[in-house]
């Protein structure tokens, strides 16, 4: 089963995603695809907190901050994959080496679609960043558009689509395992 989860900050996305990835593995291999490339101490702190959260759940960590399909030859595709988050992955793809890659959204969407179709179980987390009354600069808007492209593609190809709000699930498509 493949599941796409989005929603606001601290809405319970990661907690649900971890829980689902473990349940879908059904005792088999489950992987945490680490997409964040830390640049400072704040990032490293955040990673330490997330590692502590996952402690005892039996995840194998696969580091892959870019070129997401490249991690598939290091894993058992019959396992269960937690990718948290598409937001970080696109950030790394779009803003690499101090340049802006305008094709990143399209490429990321395509690669993630192949990713979820290549593995038995996947839970992908993204972020809802689309509902504010701000006029963004061109680069930020390019990123928002790119992430929306990724989100819409994942919502199309995944079996289940969920928006989280205050820890509650709004299910747009499919269902969850018992």
């Amino acid at each position: 089963m493949t599941v796409f989860i989005s929603g606001g900050a601290k809405s319970g996305k990661s907690g649900l995603a971890q829980d689902l990835a473990v349940r879908l593995a059904d005792g088999g291999a489950h992987y945490y695809v680490a997409t964040m490339i830390p640049v400072d101490e704040e990032d490293r702190d955040r990673i330490r907190r997330h590692v502590a959260d996952r402690d005892g759940l039996g995840f194998q960590t696969v580091e892959c901050g870019r070129d997401i399909l490249s991690c598939l030859d290091r894993v058992d595709c019959n396992g269960s994959f937690l990718l948290d988050s598409a937001t970080a992955l696109l950030m790394n793809e779009m803003f690499h080496d101090g340049t802006v890659d305008e094709q990143a959204g399209e490429r990321c969407a395509r690669e993630l679609a192949v990713f979820v179709q290549s593995v038995k179980n996947a839970v992908i987390v993204s972020d809802g960043i689309y509902c504010d009354a701000a006029r963004y600069d061109e680069v930020t808007e390019l990123y928002r558009k790119g992430l929306a492209r990724v989100d819409r593609t994942l919502a199309r190809v995944c079996d289940t689509v969920i928006e989280m709000a205050a820890g509650q699930q709004i299910i747009y498509k499919g269902g969850l395992p018992e």
Binding site: G8, Y130, C131, D132, A133, A134, R135
Partner: peptide, 21 residues
């Protein structure tokens, strides 16, 4: 477009825009 969910805008015009929308 739903523009209701961000931080309250600094600009009075954008605040009013958000409310009127």
């Amino acid at each position: 477009g739903d523009i209701s969910c961000g931080v309250v805008p600094m600009s009075a015009e954008l605040r009013l825009w958000r409310n009127e929308t």
